[in-house]
């Protein structure tokens, strides 16, 4: 499902101009990472995608739906949003019930819900923890439960707000795997992240925001190659990319494979 953003501006009641004219198109099935310093407007931007925030001016279209004309509950059938802190959404007495909550709200049939829940559980490797109380899980697994509860909604667009913050390497790999699976299913994935390695390894397109404006928007390779411009929003390209630059490699490299290939 296509996302079209047209000259989006947003001002908080405090007078802070968080978004200052953003125009952007995200095609169906794209994997997009949004990077930028704290306060650049990343969260403010993605909260417009499911109507949690309404534009002060400009418009946001999800498919043919204008977010101004549809409720958040309605938009939830098109845009899934995993919040940063799982503790701010988990409430059920066991993981299974928690994950059913979203799809049930969307009014799917019982069979479809069962199927979606099973799939989400296996994707997030939670299948053996279905009956556990979410609060008995470790923070990393709570994060996965939150992920699963949104994935089970089977929305064409999924947003992750800093999914890898505070996660160990094993769990980061699990999250990367979830994103890869969603890509296979043709879903759009939009991720806010400060984890630039994670960004380089898993996303085709990178958008860098700075002070409510788009600083860079393009393929991960192009964007991560622009070290000086990224520095304006306090983003460092991955170490390998920078090393490749220093070594004078012709191509911008993003990960180990590309780095080794370029060396040969």
């Amino acid at each position: 499902m296509k996302i079209e953003i047209n000259d989006l501006r947003f001002t908080y009641p405090t007078g802070l101009e968080a978004l200052q004219g953003i125009s952007l198109t995200i095609e169906a099935g794209e994997q997009v990472a949004i990077v930028g310093q704290n306060g650049a407007g990343k969260t403010t931007l993605v909260r417009h995608f499911n109507g949690l925030l309404q534009p002060s001016s400009g418009s946001v279209l999800i498919g043919e739906w204008d977010t101004k004309k549809h409720s958040v509950a309605k938009l939830a059938s098109r845009v899934g949003y995993v919040f940063q802190n799982p503790d701010e959404q988990l409430f059920s007495k066991d993981v299974g019930t928690e994950i059913r909550f979203g799809p049930r709200n969307l009014g799917y049939s019982k069979e479809k819900i069962d199927e979606l829940v099973t799939r989400a559980l296996s994707l997030t490797e939670l299948s053996d923890k279905t009956d556990t109380n979410p609060y008995d899980l470790s923070p990393t697994w709570r994060k996965m439960a939150a992920l699963a509860s949104v994935i089970a909604m089977d929305t064409p667009i999924v947003i992750f707000d800093e999914p890898t913050t505070g996660q160990d390497a094993v769990n980061v790999a699990r999250i990367a795997n979830v994103i890869a699976e969603l890509r296979k299913e043709g879903k759009t994935v939009i991720t806010i992240t400060h984890d630039i390695d994670f960004c380089a390894e898993n996303f085709d397109r990178v958008i860098a925001l700075s002070n409510g404006k788009i600083l860079l928007d393009g393929s991960a390779r192009d964007v991560l190659g622009q070290e000086e411009i990224l520095a304006q929003t306090y983003v460092d390209p991955p170490q390998l990319t920078r090393l490749g630059k220093r070594l004078g490699l012709k191509e911008t490299v993003r990960n180990q494979d590309e780095f080794l290939k370029a060396l040969k």
């Binding site: 949690l52 409720s71 701010e88 959404q89 969307l106």
Partner: peptide
Amino acid sequence: SAQRSRGLDT
């Protein structure tokens, strides 16, 4: 916000 994003109708 988080629960509305999960389709909770408030």
